[in-house]
Amino acid sequence: MDRARRIALVRSTESIQAADRLPSNKGRASRVHALIDAFGLDAHMEIVAPEPMSDSGLAVFHSEEYIARIFAATDGGYPSSNGQEDGKENGTDEELGLEQFGLVHDCAVFDGLEEHVRYAAGGTVAGADALVRGRADVAIHWEGGRHHCRPAKAAGFCYINDVVLGILALQTRFGRILYIDLDLHHGDGVQSAFQYSDRVMTLSIHHYDRGFYPNSGRNYDEGKGRGAGRSINVPLRRGAGDDTFFRAFSGVTTSILTTFAPAVVVVQCGCDGLAGDPHKVFNLTTDAFTKSVTTVLGWGLPTLLLGGGGYSRPDCARCWTRLTGVACGRDIPAATDVPEHRFLGEFAPAFDMASDAMLMNDENDDEAVDSAVRAIQQILHSQSQ
């Protein structure tokens, strides 16, 4: 781009606090934004305060019954079959109701759930709106990226699918939308939502193995009906490092640009594939993400950057701060010292921006990756004829 990019960072004190209460990512949002501010990046962006999403806004994708049940659960009451409010003492109704909507186990109800849902959705839609209205070239919402939730069921730490809501908002202006999912886990909820659409292409680069959540995302999941060839998956084996990851990313996206020609891009930057993440499945450093996002921004298309998975708070802060710097045109090398700020002690012992790779065998050989990319390229070119 000839002129400087206009960047919108979606956040507010209230939205950060709401994200901080999510049990799987407790306190993560505060760490991310404190580090962004410690580098002074906030001075190079417009800060957009999100509004909590209304019930009608959530119902653009989610069922009204799901919305009612999730907020009733938050309030401590559970709508019964006769429409009356049952208290928590009615265990059978409570358990059946929660199970039906996925509000158990990894998506158990917690204090602050309603605020989390409303701000996660409202923030991503606010970012999409900034692109739709032409207020920004790049919009960033690190508290978004909840890609597993279905219309009527929570799943995989995701109580809302803000990604789908954001893409639907983008459709009010943009004809073709490319969704790229960099999370360790397959972006199943987003793919499912748009599997019949010829306007949205979903690309997910993730780990796939028998028994690994969400047990989807094989390379022959290609979309259905008008969406045939629009659901692109690159499943990788354990130990994928930066070279493997970017080899797959660059090979597929080059073909997507020429065959699909998107007008806008949404990137879910879940960083649970980092070497330091508790999952310890991929062996990525933050360089894999900075190279990928730099490539996307180089296309010069309106872009929405979202968060996602990532369970090492310091590494998430490192990764998303570096990506924020990339968007602002201010590179933060991995060797850079972490500035003084209130969470500095959590970056011990190195106190730098690096998330180093481990000694781990990469089970993905170049030939296998190239073969998978070629197969996808053939699908893309056959659909573009």
Rank of each mutant, 00 (worst) to 15 (best):
I177G: 03
L284K: 05
Q191G: 07
H148W: 00
H341M: 15
N161D: 13
A193F: 06
W299L: 15
L203S: 01
A128Q: 11
L35A: 09
H341Y: 12
G91A: 14
V281S: 01
G144V: 04
Q171W: 02
G91S: 12
Q100T: 12
G27T: 08
N25E: 08
R247M: 06
R28V: 08
G270H: 04
F249Q: 04
G77E: 12
F351N: 07
G325E: 10
D86I: 15
D162F: 08
V104E: 10
F347Y: 13
R237P: 04
F351E: 07
H33L: 13
S24T: 03
A34M: 13
Y208L: 12
E340P: 11
Q268I: 11
E367C: 06
A73K: 04
I67R: 02
T303P: 13
D365T: 05
L103N: 07
D55A: 12
W299D: 13
E85D: 14
E114S: 15
V266Y: 04
S56F: 08
W320R: 10
L323H: 02
S81V: 14
D356T: 06
T172N: 14
Q377I: 03
L184C: 08
A18M: 05
V104M: 11
L103I: 11
H185V: 08
A354V: 01
R5S: 12
D337K: 15
A375G: 06
F260Q: 06
S312V: 07
V109Y: 03
Y159P: 00
Q378Y: 08
F260I: 10
G122E: 05
Y66S: 01
R146L: 14
E46H: 11
A375M: 12
L184K: 05
F212P: 02
D183R: 09
S56Y: 08
R322T: 09
Q385Y: 05
V265D: 09
A368N: 07
